[in-house]
């Protein structure tokens, strides 16, 4: 997948728009989006496969080590923005960490924590709003 992404970038390099983003940001975004699509597609196929086999189990996304919330805490310490992140609590914090560090969509976060997707969207939105306000204050 990494090979495919970079070969595609190479082949389409002439279409790169410098005004849109920095080169490294652009490269990272392309690969990250490609990885997200791949991961979500794999998760979908795995879930369908399990359903076909009538195993009665669902596809779980494995927790990385350290987990997403631990990574968020480490980032807070490394960037000295722990105060900002501490303003984001409970499910807002959990959803933000799952979305950023495990690349889960709204629906996947909802399935992962067993909450309605509407609630998840609201929690993530409020988490981002708090982060934006706090970081803008620091800047």
């Amino acid at each position: 997948m990494l090979q495919d992404a970079f070969v595609n970038i190479w082949n389409r390099a002439s279409g790169y728009q410098a005004a849109l983003s920095q080169p490294m940001t652009c490269l990272t975004a392309i690969v990250r989006n490609r990885a997200l699509d791949e991961l979500r597609s794999s998760a979908r196929h795995a879930a369908e496969s399990l359903a076909d086999e009538e195993t009665g189990t669902t596809h779980d996304i494995e927790d990385a080590s350290p987990g997403p919330q631990a990574l968020l805490e480490q980032a807070g310490d490394a960037l000295a923005i722990r105060d900002c992140l501490d303003e984001i609590e409970g499910p807002q914090r959990q959803c933000l960490a799952l979305a950023f560090y495990q690349g889960l969509s709204h629906a996947e976060v909802a399935a992962h924590i067993g909450s309605p997707i509407g609630s998840v969207k609201g929690w993530i939105r409020r988490a981002l709003d708090k982060l934006k306000r706090c970081l803008d204050r620091l800047a």
């Binding site: 990494l2 190479w10 490294m24 490269l27 690969v31 990885a35 997200l36 991961l39 990574l71």
Partner: peptide, 25 residues
């Protein structure tokens, strides 16, 4: 482009492994 893409390889691989964006600069 190679000068650009080579460091990005390590970066992108980190992205794949963790689905986060690794520190660049």
């Amino acid at each position: 482009f190679l000068g650009l893409i080579k460091p990005a390889l390590g970066v992108a691989f980190g992205v794949l492994a963790t689905l986060g964006v690794v520190r660049l600069f």
